[in-house]
Simulated assay, not measured.
Amino acid sequence: MQNELVLLHGWGMNQGVWQLVQAELEFLHADEVRSVDLPGYGNSSACPHPYTLHAAAALLSEQLKPQSILMGWSLGGLFALYIAQHWPEKVAKVILVAASPLFAEQAQWPGIKDNVLAQFKQQLVNQREKTIERFLAIQAMGSASARDDIKQLKQLLNHYNAPQEAALTAGLDILQQQDLRPLFAQCPVPVRAIFGRLDALVPYKAIAKMAALNSAFEYEVIDKASHAPFISHKNEFLTAVKSML
């Protein structure tokens, strides 16, 4: 019996984003593959108050079987690392997809500029749909199939409920404020990762910094991919996952 593979989506999204690769992942893994909604997103009605990474991760951990493999994309990567540290009996391995233990740019750490996240927060209040669309556009930046990627992403997401306001606001706070580098450095389970070289949210330069923190960390970079490699470069992505499983 293999470990269940659990797929965690990113900010503003839902489990629908994994539909393009879920069948192939099931074939590769030959065991149960499950995509779940983060608290407050999609079909997850559970939304902690106040919404913190700890409270939301605790809710998520309750849904996991022991020794799960967590594949976290973007914000989902922070959840995966956090759960691995706090509920290690639930996690056998973490696979990060376009995710970093620290998303915000800091001295000596490449990341998202503070004003970008602040702008998103401001716009979220007035124009939720437009803000999420802008975020989708950033995710596809640099990818040769950017326009098609965004269209595809939107179609997949529309099969599920819109995210709750509290989850969106808190999600941006988590991306802006959480620094899981100490946790990443001491992670009790193996951490693997897949990156896109053209990613605007997890800059290529951040990868070497991550490798310096955790000597057991292994990763692959897809050259022409951006922030959603499993959509823009599906075959390369699946090849990378195969070696990590």
Rank of each mutant, 00 (worst) to 15 (best):
L5I: 13
H9I: 08
N14L: 09
N14G: 09
V21K: 03
Q22N: 10
L25V: 10
E26W: 02
D31S: 12
D31H: 13
D37N: 14
G40H: 08
S44R: 15
A46D: 12
Y51W: 05
T52S: 14
H54R: 04
E62W: 10
Q67W: 09
Q67A: 15
L70K: 03
M71T: 03
V94E: 04
V97N: 01
V97T: 04
S100H: 00
S100A: 09
L102N: 06
F103I: 05
E105S: 08
W109F: 10
P110Y: 11
I112N: 01
N115W: 12
K121A: 06
Q122I: 04
Q123M: 10
L124V: 07
E129R: 07
E133R: 02
R134N: 14
R134E: 15
F135P: 01
M141G: 07
S143L: 02
S143G: 14
S143V: 02
R147Q: 12
I150R: 07
L153T: 09
L156F: 11
N161G: 06
P163T: 04
A170V: 04
D173F: 01
L175A: 01
L175S: 02
Q177L: 13
A185C: 02
P190Q: 04
P190E: 04
L198A: 10
P203F: 07
A208E: 11
N214S: 05
E218W: 00
E220Q: 14
D223F: 05
S226Y: 12
A240G: 12
K242C: 06
L245S: 01
